[in-house]
């Protein structure tokens, strides 16, 4: 799949934002209104920036509200609705706290639950795609939730949680890669099944239907850069988990270092999210003799 920057940013940032909301809703601690305000603003900014960024790749962003209508069947619709509810609920929660200094834990729990649900919905947009076997497995939402919670924990300053979660996320990501690598083969899809010609023999594309590029190839058959994926996995893993863990375990996480770790984690997140798209092979590639 084409790793569109807008989608990478959307999923990465909104995930972080909603992850932060989870922590702010569950373990707000005794932050001052000011501090809480800053955290809440950050959570809202990240999640809504992500949502806004997702509209950049729309052909018709002005019709974006129509995307909320199909909650009965569409995960994208559901995600939009739940995200708005989450934002609303969390704003209420934050508003009471920051402006009125009223802490309403129920709103916090509800916000946290909704935030998790939003991330789940986001993940399900990808998970549901049978056409992209690497995504089409139960671990995908777990992974997205893992990213949200871990990133959120780092942002929220929940260092202990963050360290445990980071370790778990690292393992999870490795598992997802390992299992994901075999997903395409597991489906049994091949150019032979795609064309129905497998009973006749080995099937190979001889001539593509068009000698130039097209939308399908640009969007779904991204092969450029994938040859670096092993390298990128290592880099991603180092930034995402290994360095934050090492630093967090060796030093006391405060101020500057917290910032460094968060940025490092974010960098790792962007790399792995890029890989999430770039490595995902759509079955349509079979028609083009590409994966």
């Amino acid at each position: 799949m084409h790793p569109a920057p807008s989608i990478i940013l959307f999923t990465a940032l909104s995930g972080l934002g909603f992850g932060l909301m989870v922590w702010l809703g569950l373990t707000p601690g005794d932050k001052s209104a000011w501090v809480m305000g800053t955290f809440c603003a950050l959570a809202l900014a990240l999640s809504s920036a992500g949502l806004v960024s997702s509209t950049f790749h729309l052909g018709h962003p002005e019709r974006a509200l129509k995307a909320l209508t199909q909650w009965r069947s569409s995960w994208l619709s559901r995600e939009g609705i739940v995200a708005i509810l989450t934002l609303g609920c969390f704003t209420l929660y934050a508003g009471f706290w920051v402006l009125l200094d009223q802490r309403i834990p129920v709103l916090g729990w509800l916000s946290a639950a909704l935030a998790l649900l939003t991330v789940y919905c986001t993940a399900m947009i990808y998970t549901q795609m049978k056409s992209v076997p690497r995504w089409n497995m139960g671990l995908t939402p777990v992974l997205f939730l893992g990213y949200a919670l871990t990133g959120g924990a780092w942002l929220a300053g929940e260092v202990t949680w963050a360290l445990w979660l980071t370790a778990a996320l690292g393992l999870l990501q490795v598992a997802v890669w390992a299992i994901g690598d075999g997903r395409f083969a597991d489906t049994g899809s091949s150019t032979g099944t795609a064309t129905g010609l497998s009973p006749m023999g080995d099937v190979r594309l001889l001539e593509a239907p068009h000698s130039g590029p097209n939308y399908l190839l640009r969007e779904m058959v991204h092969v450029i850069g994938r040859k670096h994926s092993q390298k990128l996995r290592v880099i991603g893993m180092i930034c995402l988990a290994l360095l934050p863990l090492a630093l967090g375990l060796v030093f006391e996480v405060k101020h500057m270092l917290a910032g460094v770790i968060v940025l490092m984690h974010l960098a790792g997140l962007l790399v792995t999210r890029w890989l999430f798209f770039a490595e995902a092979e759509h079955v349509v590639g079979l028609y083009y003799g590409k994966r």
Partner: peptide, 27 residues
Amino acid sequence: SDCIGCGLCAWACPYGAREMDQAEGVM
């Protein structure tokens, strides 16, 4: 007139049967 050009349906189609029009931004 309802399509926002999100491209999701083209992703969902295993057969590559949908193409987003680059000028109009609809599927």
